[in-house]
Nucleic acid binder design. Structure first.
Length: 170
DNA sequence: AAGGCGATTGCCT
DNA sequence: GGCAATCGCCTTT
């Protein structure tokens, strides 16, 4: 974010993807699109979904091993005005959950686009931070991943049960 | 060179 | 719940 106020969100819903995982973009090995998935963990992988929306992942594996976590929903912490503006929502203190409860929605709100592909989440202006919040086991929901056609039964979607910002079934 | 399809969303019924 | 919108990637000729 350049020349803008701070934007901050909390991750409340994610999905895990692994190299040995038929549902993962990395399953068939490196390609131009998924190349960043095979870099070291801590990088940002952005791809175009359905020719319309961008989705953002955190690369999590070692170099040459294509693992990543898709960010599916976030909760606003700071910069709500910009988040609303980016989505074309009128600003209110309590915006509808539809502002951020989907992988293509949150990238639009945060302004994440293919220019972010390959960036480090440790950059000064683009940082992923451990908030140090500890959750009880039963607070973390598990479910099959959404919108995939392979490995449908794997419970690799994780979400915070108490958060109203998660995208679907809680 | 060409065609099928997807880690989605929003609108319509 | 169904479906159109939309385009780059990947696979196949």
């Amino acid at each position: 974010m350049q020349g803008r106020d701070l934007l901050a969100v909390k991750l409340v819903e994610v999905e895990a993807y692994f190299q040995e995982d038929p549902a993962s973009h990395s399953f068939s090995g490196p390609s131009r699109r998924n190349a960043v998935m095979f870099e070291e963990g801590g990088l940002c992988y952005v791809y175009l979904s359905y020719g319309i929306h961008y989705c953002v992942n955190v690369v999590t594996g070692r170099k040459h091993h294509g693992d990543a976590v898709l960010i599916r929903a976030v909760e606003p912490l700071f910069g709500l005005r910009f988040l609303c503006e980016n989505r074309g929502f009128p600003y209110t203190e309590a915006p509808p959950f539809a502002l951020l409860n989907g992988p293509g929605k949150l990238t639009e709100a945060l302004g994440i686009n293919p220019a972010y592909n390959g960036r480090s989440f440790r950059d000064k202006d683009f940082k992923l931070i451990d908030l140090g919040i500890s959750l009880e086991e039963e607070e973390i929901g598990e479910s099959p991943r959404i919108g995939i056609s392979k490995a449908k039964d794997e419970l690799l979607r994780y979400f915070i049960r108490s958060s109203p910002w998660v995208s679907k079934a809680r």
